Simulated assay, not measured.
Amino acid sequence: MSEVDDTRFGRLLHGHRTRVGLTQRELADLSTVSVRAIRDLEQGRARRPRQDTVRLVADALRLSRQAREDLERAAHQGRTGWSLRTDYAVELAPAPGVQGPLIGREVEVDALVEELRHSRLVGLVGLSGVGKTRVAVEVAARAHRGGVPVLWVGVDCPIRDERLAAVVQAGVAGLCRTGDERAAGDLAELIAGRETLLVLDDPARVLDGERVKVLLRDCPALRVLVVGTAPADLPGERPFLLSALGDEAAVRLFLHHARAERPVVEDETVVGICAGLDGLPRALAAAASWLAVYDPVRLAVALRDDPLDHVEGVLRPSGVREGLVRCVRDLPDPGLLGRLPQEFTLDDVVAVTGGSLPESGRLVRGLLLRGVVRPHLADRFRVPALVRAVLAQMLVAV
């Protein structure tokens, strides 16, 4: 394997500049790149020029197509992202496999697809267990069917090339505040101007707003979908709240899962079970698994008496309880919901917090985007039953 010549870019840049008779200052003025940067590049002290820096000096020097390509190759030699660009095929970057039926989410999927057409950075947010990943999978699958590569980073990584997956995962880590910024640059070089959907389905990541902004600037056809329980507070992010399933869709989804355990028909008991599970798809699936050992009437009683244990599956944990607890604990003021009535107005928030009406409005909007409160009637809000159960459990623990 040949060694990388770290000085080639500097030598090429110096040769092109002197050939057209420009000083470093004159090239700096024409390209808007600093004199110091040009000097460091020519002398080999800066060996990883940014993609936009290469473009600016090439434009200023009015290089031919061949000379520009030579300069770009010299700038990017040895970089994994650049070397993988020719192997960056749509079939290597699919969406994850389908995770069960999509029931009652057709409107939300259509709306999210449309949002991504107009917004380059979208945050898909909502309460844990509401089905954000399943909706994101459907949106990604539609993009992939349309010929758009999907770079999915989360618990699963469906990218079918190990080198490509490694660059993407390292690059996303580089977008975090404590990550390697050079890896984020490799990701930008990989994507470049190609239409791509990047899905970040890992709410534990704390992304750096400036690094994400640079990635979007360097990749003009890139769309980013960030999945989490709350907005990531990134510049230009458009929050898209995924609300709970409606009553009819919740019953349909529950019956779909219930029929794997025993024959069940829709009746008042089933409707009541679904109402108590707040329209959360993962909670509905976990509760239905208990029909292997309970009849519907006994399940309804069990959910009333001990809801959090029964939103964990009968055979394997669903993660619903843990996710709900994390959602409540991550609130700026976890105790606020416990101090409010089950159904409340903005005036109640003003009375409890002592804040102004605008401050209370912003506070409630933040709670709505996290899914821990929901609109109720014209001017009221309510805390979902499972969130109330978590609050009660936390109060007992204290």
Rank of each mutant, 00 (worst) to 15 (best):
R8I: 13
F9E: 06
G15K: 08
V20H: 07
V33C: 01
L41T: 05
R48T: 12
V57N: 09
A60T: 00
A60W: 10
R62P: 00
L63M: 08
S64H: 08
R65V: 03
D70R: 14
A74P: 04
H76M: 15
T80R: 15
W82E: 11
T86I: 04
A93E: 11
A95W: 14
V98G: 00
G104K: 09
A111K: 08
V113M: 06
L116Q: 07
H118W: 09
S119K: 05
V125L: 07
G126R: 12
V135A: 04
E138W: 00
A140L: 06
A141M: 04
R142D: 00
V150C: 02
P158V: 13
P158N: 10
L164Q: 09
Q169K: 08
Q169V: 07
A170C: 09
G171E: 11
G174I: 05
L175D: 03
T178K: 08
T178M: 13
A192C: 02
E195H: 09
V199S: 06
D201I: 04
K213Q: 15
L216E: 02
A221P: 01
A221W: 08
L222W: 00
V224T: 06
V227D: 02
V227C: 02
T229E: 11
A230H: 10
D233T: 13
P235D: 13
G236W: 15
P239W: 15
A244K: 00
E248W: 11
A249Y: 11
L253S: 07
L255Y: 13
H257T: 02
E261D: 10
E261M: 15
V265L: 14
I273W: 07
A275T: 14
G276N: 11
D278R: 13
G279V: 01
G279K: 12
R282E: 08
A288F: 13
Y294G: 00
A300N: 10
H310E: 11
V314N: 03
G323M: 05
V328E: 04
D330Y: 08
L340I: 03
P341K: 09
D347H: 13
A351C: 11
V352D: 05
V352I: 05
P358D: 09
S360E: 07
G361R: 05
R365N: 08
L367S: 02
L368N: 06
R370S: 01
A389D: 01
L395P: 10
V396E: 14
V398E: 13
